[in-house]
């Protein structure tokens, strides 16, 4: 593990305010107050269940290969779980639904069990790369018992997104 992460980990330990696991979702249309509610999704932001008692998740890479099978508790969100287990899932805006970097693809049978995304999440998914019909923002999916065994696949990113030297004409 890299040193900077350790540094923040230590900081999170000594400053309980940094350990807020998630912001309450703002009601529809209301501005999200995220001024100083620093949400640092690092180790320690969630607790791991006793092995064998938690909800199982299969994290898969873009090719579909299993990266890690992990266990987590009811109410934990996918982004926090990913960070707890060193899965390379970004959370640039730290769960405030202002980016699409924690985009994940869920197994269809589990996707249908989750409450539908709200407008703000859908607005961010509009901009996600490699969007599928079962895409969600990891920060917005909270675990329930029925999601046991769910696949969580990281989307594929390709160089095609960054067209070196070519610019679409706007004329």
């Amino acid at each position: 593990m890299s040193r900077p992460r350790l540094a923040v980990h230590a900081l999170a330990r000594c400053r309980p305010s940094l350990r807020v696991a998630g912001l309450p979702r703002a009601p529809h249309g209301a501005p999200r107050r995220a001024l100083h509610a620093t949400v640092v999704r690092q180790h320690g932001s969630i607790t791991r269940p006793e092995p064998g008692t938690g909800i199982k998740l299969n994290f898969r890479d873009a090719k579909g290969d299993v990266l890690k099978v992990v266990e987590a508790n009811e109410g934990d969100d996918i982004l926090s779980i990913a960070h707890e287990h060193d899965i390379d899932l970004e959370g640039a805006c730290e769960g405030s639904v202002a980016c699409s970097t924690c985009h994940v693809i869920l197994s269809p049978q589990h996707y249908d069990l989750i409450p539908e995304p709200e407008d703000d999440e859908n607005d961010m998914l509009d901009m996600a790369f490699g969007l599928t019909d079962t895409s969600r923002l990891g920060c917005q999916v909270k675990l329930t018992r029925t999601l046991d065994g769910m696949d969580v696949q990281l989307p594929s990113a390709t160089r095609n997104m960054f067209v070196d030297g070519k610019k679409p004409t706007h004329h």
Partner: peptide
């Protein structure tokens, strides 16, 4: 909330 990205920048700077 977009400015939350700076926490990661602070980590790098540490």
């Amino acid at each position: 909330e977009v400015k939350n990205v700076t926490h990661k920048f602070d980590q790098a700077a540490a």
